[in-house]
Simulated assay, not measured.
Amino acid sequence: MIARAIVCFACYFLTFPLPAQSSYSIPNDSKKILFLGNSISYAGHYLTYVETYLRLMHPERNWEFINLGLPSETVSGLSEEGHASGRFPRPDLHERLDRVLKAVEPDFIFSCYGMNDGIYLPFDESRFSAYKKGQGKLQQKADALGIPLVHLTPPVYDRAQDPAYAAVLSVYASWMVSQRYTQDWKVIDLYWPMRKFLEDRRESNPAFALTTDGIHPGEQGHWLMARSLLKGIGESQHLEADLHKEVFDSIPLGAELLPLVREKQELTRDAWLTFTGHERPGLREGLPMDQALSKKDELMQAISTLLSTGKIR
C-alpha cells in the first residue's frame, strides 16, 4: 500500500506539474547569504555558479556568500546502521545550527536537505516524519530570528539499481514543494526540473547521467541546480544554456571571475566549518578565522578590481 502511494504521488507530479512559483527576492539590505546543506552543498559548485552570476549581474551589491554545507549531514537527525563503515554516524544539522547562526549572523539562508534524510532505505513513515520535523525545526528557528529562509528541494537521485530510494526522494521533494502552499514556506524546486531534464535527455541517449554515483551531481547537474535557484530569485538573463561554461563564456568577465569565486568559496567554507565546529570527521581543517578573512579580503579586492576594470589582479 505504501509503495503504491509513493508511485502515485510521484506520477502525479510528473503528469500534473505544480503551478509556477513566485520568485523570491533577496532584500537589498541582505549582505550575508548563508548556505546550509550536505556534501552536495559542501562541494559547492552550484554555490560558485550562483555567486559568480549574481556578482556579474549585480556588481553594485555588497554580497557575502557563506557555504556551511557539511558532508553526510541530515536535517532529520537520522543515520543508518553502519554508516561510513561504522566510523561515525551522520551529523545532525540541529547539533550545530545555533552555533552557526550565532557566529555568522546571516541576513538570508538557503537550505538544501533531503538526499541523505531517507538514509538510502525504502520509504518509511517514521523516517519521513523525522525529515518533516527537522525541516520544521529549521523553519521555526529562522522565523524566531527573523531571518528569511529559502528551502531548496534535494537534487535528483539516479541509481538504476535502487528505484525504491528514487521514489523516496520524489516524495520528499514533492512534500517540500507542497509547503509553499500549505505553510507559506519559501521553496525553490531543484528536483523536478533536474528529473525532467534527465528524462528528456534519455529519450535520445539512454546512458545519459547527471551523476557518476547516482547521488552527487557533476558540473552540469550543479549548473542545473544553480539555474533553478537563480530563476527562483527572479533572475532570467543568460539562463537558457544547459552548461555553465556556455553561460559564463557569454557574459563579459564571467570566465575570469569564476575561478576567483571558487577559490574564495573553498577558503571561507573550510574556515567557517572549523570555526563553528561539527561532528563530521575527516574534513580538511580550515585556516584560523582571522587569517581566512584576511585572505578573503584580498580575493574580494581582486574580484572588485576585475569587475570594475576588467583586469585580473
Rank of each mutant, 00 (worst) to 15 (best):
R227S: 11
E125I: 14
K137Q: 15
L34F: 03
D297W: 00
V187P: 01
K196H: 13
M1T: 08
V177N: 12
P91I: 07
F65S: 02
E263D: 10
A43V: 04
A241S: 14
P288S: 09
D297S: 14
I233Y: 02
L145I: 01
R202Q: 15
Q135Y: 00
G286S: 10
S236A: 14
F208E: 11
Q161C: 09
L257I: 01
P259K: 07
F197Q: 01
D189T: 09
P122R: 06
R269Q: 12
Q237A: 15
M225L: 10
S85M: 12
S178R: 14
L258V: 09
M194V: 03
E203V: 13
H94C: 03
Y49W: 03
S41R: 00
I6R: 05
K102V: 04
P71L: 05
R4V: 13
E256P: 00
L47A: 01
R99P: 00
A10V: 14
H278C: 08
L14R: 15
T305Y: 13
Y113A: 03
D29T: 09
A173G: 08
K264M: 10
I303V: 12
D189Y: 05
E246A: 14
A3T: 12
E266R: 13
R99V: 02
A173W: 06
H45F: 12
G232K: 07
I109L: 03
F9Q: 11
D162T: 07
K264G: 07
G286D: 07
G134H: 05
E285T: 10
G286H: 09
D249K: 12
S178V: 11
A292M: 06
Y191S: 02
Y157F: 15
D290G: 00
A142P: 08
L54E: 04
F16M: 09
M176W: 01
E285G: 00
P71Y: 02
I119N: 04
I109C: 02
L18V: 06
D184A: 13
Q21N: 07
G44L: 06
S294E: 13
D162H: 07
A173S: 15
